[in-house]
């Protein structure tokens, strides 16, 4: 009897965790959209200079990072997709959101320092373990 209960409990916990993960994913997305409005005035560029914006000032770097993982259902779907091949659609929104979060953190740090732009922006992704990656954004502040 206990064996059956445990066998039932494990998938239930995983499904509940994944469902909670989905809700949290949507909530994070909405949170990102709200915060984006506050830093909308900051120009972001992968180029090293922004004509008309590079007023001389103390040179400074700005960094934003986040470590994000995919929920259990996405991991299972992703593992299957790895067998078949093709785009792993279950991971695309996770990384997309993580990159948005990391660049937003960079922009918020820039905003806190009174910058009007971030130039030479670089994005990097590093795998931390099987299902978590760090998304890093960095650049140089322009005042």
């Amino acid at each position: 009897m206990t064996g059956v209960l445990i066998q039932l409990a494990i998938p239930l916990v995983l499904i509940l965790a994944a469902a909670g993960g989905r809700v949290a994913h949507r909530r994070r997305g909405a949170h990102i959209e709200r915060r984006r409005a506050d830093v909308a005035h900051i120009t972001l560029s992968p180029r090293p200079t922004l004509p008309g914006l590079d007023e001389p000032r103390h040179g400074e770097l700005v960094v934003g990072s986040v470590v994000m993982g995919a929920d259990y259902i996405r991991q299972v779907v992703g593992a299957w997709r790895n067998v078949i091949g093709g785009e792993i659609r279950s991971f695309t929104p996770v990384l997309d959101q993580a990159r948005a979060e990391s660049s937003l953190r960079m922009l918020e740090a820039a905003n806190a320092k009174g910058a009007v732009g971030v130039v030479n922006v670089r994005f990097e992704a590093v795998r931390i373990n099987n299902n978590a990656s760090e998304l890093l954004s960095y650049g140089t502040l322009v005042y």
């Binding site: 995983l14 965790a17 949290a24 470590v67 993982g69 259990y72 931390i128 760090e134």
Partner: peptide
Amino acid sequence: GAAFKNMAGGELKAYTELLAESR
């Protein structure tokens, strides 16, 4: 802690902080 958090996905704050400190 991160292994449990991984089931639900989302940000692993402990790792974010750890990596930021190291950087």
